[in-house]
């Protein structure tokens, strides 16, 4: 035990740097330290299960996603009768935090546990899994936008409708009462959709106030906004205009290239 405490104190008071490699080194040191001690202490399987869950949760809080995943897998592998819902659900959360996506394989693995354990019958769990399924695996855009997870589903649906050139449907999902105080992407998206639906009709562009403030900005959003201002003046975007927007999107926000395709549809 003395050796253990001395080691701990050395570990605690060495180094204040937060460089990434040091962060990882420290995490590994602590982890090894705990695991070694667990071997000595021989806690029950149930205690081990809770420890793994707790360690995983804490690693997640500090963005050590790989470590978090490792510990949730250890918790899942334990042959105990305890509820493993947290571990399974957070497998998806970790995947999303790391890659901004959830694989079907992980989703199905989680669903298998939830069905087997009967947890899927709980309304909250069922609603959450439905949200994941609709947002990540459904061919059709989500339709349930209520509450806590609603905005995520809604954003995904709007994007999906724009990609499918269903501009009216996309526009119908936007709350026009709140869009003017919203961020620039939401405002440009709203203005672009209205322009696509209403044609060259004149209406107040929500992006215009920002364009007035940053008239020379090279941001893709401002290029789209400038194009919309000109469109209201009767000028249909040329292929050169579209190409410039596409080029900016590739450099600044490649995942939003579909905006350039929509601009091309302004006739």
């Amino acid at each position: 035990m003395k050796v253990f405490l001395v080691s701990l104190l050395c570990l605690i008071f060495t180094g204040n740097s937060f460089a990434a490699d040091e962060r990882i080194k420290s995490a590994e040191q602590i982890e090894r330290f705990f695991l070694d001690e667990m071997k000595v202490s021989k806690p029950t399987d149930t205690s081990k299960f809770y420890f793994y869950n707790l360690a995983a949760r804490e690693f997640y809080s500090y963005k050590f996603y790989d470590k978090s995943l490792e510990y949730y897998e250890l918790a899942i592998a334990m042959k105990v009768s305890e509820d493993k819902t947290e571990a399974f659900i957070n497998l998806m959360a970790i995947e999303h935090a790391k890659k901004r996506e959830i694989t079907k394989k992980t989703y199905e693995r989680v669903m298998k546990y939830l069905k087997g354990s009967g947890k899927i019958k709980e309304a909250g769990i069922s609603r959450y899994m439905n949200f994941i399924s609709e947002s990540f695996f459904s061919d059709k855009p989500a339709k349930d936008f209520r509450g806590f997870f609603g905005q995520y589903s809604k954003d995904k649906s709007i994007k999906s409708y724009i990609k499918n050139k269903e501009y009216k449907k996309a526009l119908s999902l936007i709350n026009d009462k709140s869009v003017y105080d919203s961020d620039i992407v939401n405002r440009v998206q709203f203005d672009l959709l209205r322009s696509l639906v209403l044609g060259k009709a004149k209406f107040k562009l929500s992006c215009k106030s920002t364009l007035d403030k940053f008239p020379n900005s090279f941001a893709w959003s401002m290029k789209v906004c400038r194009t919309l201002v000109n469109y209201q003046k009767g000028r249909t975007p040329s292929s050169k205009d579209v190409s410039k927007i596409k080029s900016s999107l590739k450099k600044q926000s490649e995942s939003r290239l579909y905006f350039a395709v929509a601009v091309e549809d302004l006739k």
């Binding site: 570990l11 605690i12 180094g15 204040n16 937060f18 962060r23 420290s26 995490a27 602590i30 982890e31 705990f34 205690s47 809770y50 420890f51 869950n53 707790l54 360690a55 949760r57 804490e58 690693f59 809080s61 500090y62 050590f64 509820d83 819902t85 947290e86």
Partner: peptide
């Protein structure tokens, strides 16, 4: 301790709680 240890210490502290 540094933040990694904070995290670990924090984790161990929570061993006392029933997770869910």
């Amino acid at each position: 301790c540094n933040q990694n240890l904070l995290g670990a210490g924090y984790a161990v502290k929570n061993l006392f709680a029933t997770p869910f």
